[in-house]
Nucleic acid binder design. Sequence first.
RNA 1: GGCGCCAUAGCCAAGCGGUAAGGCACGGGUCUGCAAAACCCUGAUCGGCGGUUCGAAUCCGCCUGGCGCCUCCA
Length: 475
Amino acid sequence: MTPDLRIYNTQTRQIETFTTIEPGVVRMYVCGVTPYASAHVGHGMSAIVFDTIRRYLEHRGFRVRHAQNFTDIDDKIILRAAREGTTPQAMVERLIAEWLEDTDSLNILRATVYPRVTQEIPAIVAMVDGLIARGHAYAVDGDVYFRVRSFPSYGKLSHRRLDDLLSGARIEVDERKDDPLDFALWKAAKPGEPSWDSPWGQGRPGWHIECSAMCAAHLDGAVDIHGGGADLIFPHHENEIAQSEAFLGREPFARFWVHNGLLQLSDQKMSKSLGNMVRIREIAGRGLAPAFRLMVLQSHYRAPLTYTDDGLLAAENGLDRLRAAARAAAPNDGEGGAGAGSNVAALAAEAETRFHAAMSDDFDTPGAVAALFDLGRAINRHGASGGATADVDAARGTLRDLAGILGLPLSDTGADAADSDAAPFVDLLLDLRNQLRAAKQWAIADAVRDGLAERGIAVEDGPTGSTWSWARRDA
RNA sequence: GGCGCCAUAGCCAAGCGGUAAGGCACGGGUCUGCAAAACCCUGAUCGGCGGUUCGAAUCCGCCUGGCGCCUCCA
């Protein structure tokens, strides 16, 4: 039997049993990106984390309504577009297309909807208007600010007190605001900026309001899971709560606040503003996107993870191990003792149980992955020992299925070798080489293997014949 | 200054009161013409000091060292 699903909630700081507003349906909103530069691996980590959560929820039988926004208008976009001599719209379109390519490469399922700020202006204006009407916001010179003091529970997500925030002294003082902590819902347009009509004049939305409006428009106002990187807890998510709950007049706006730890690069947060980023397309271009996914999954989603190239390559090696174990047709030698005793079927069932126990416990993907590796070893151990090959095949199926839940495809990477234009020629070379081997012409046979290796083709000799595959690009 | 997180074998990383998962790398074996793969074997008492407990990596306190948020950020 499958254990209850338990998830850590940032707001309560506790692991709670997961329940939904509507039975069988999960409304999940994950803060997306502001497309003003290529996505880096930190964004990739977040996308992988929430994609894995979504996949597991779906595996558990939930229908997941997954919304991820694009903040397609803001200061940085305007600035960057101007610098590049293009329009904000053109740049945004290009980068959104890039984002979808990048997330595809990481095997991220497409969200149910990708709302964009610029397409939600009426809903945003309506919400801002409603907040003014309820006394939670006020307009000044074309700007509109949320009155933080009007929302008594402000700070409940990030566990801050207003007085502590004030003493931070890093809040710029704006005389026009009633209170230094008040934040913008609507910003008056400056000359030349993209802008929209509103009751307060030409302008555009503030940073936080979009997500509230989109949750209202696309997920019926309240959500079961609201996610994002840990750096969004304050002020972004705190402000979202204030806006949404003040507007809706009820709580909670989100039942589970889920935040992933941040990816670090050389012991420092990776961030677009710091410029210390590694782009997703760089690793995808090296064929290491699946390895990156495994690297992320081998650490708990709430813990920070340091990105290193060594770590990435280590994950690739581990992934190869899983792929080999899952490969059905490979009649590996490896006549390990195996023997009777434990049987694969039982070990597969055990791995599955461990997998679900781990995933149900606040998405402990490292534990789930460990179960996968153990199952892989059990398969390899029994693989060649004759016996119940049907059980071994079934275990391979279990391994592939469980890995699939994590978004790790283990299916034959050998397929692309067979499809390659070079295949007939490589096959011919291997055929000739095996004739040489039969004649014990080792030196020439090895020269062929070495020559192929130099050209990126790895050859392996097994008891039933030789196989080849494209070696990983670069290394 | 305020709030919070982390510190486990060479590296990465689980663990949530009962005597340390998993991955990578290293070394020794088996198999192999060789190589590769696979399998087997080998390694930590959990940053330091106190405390609570029959019992703590797991709870509490202090210290040391990292990091995050408080400003745009996944």
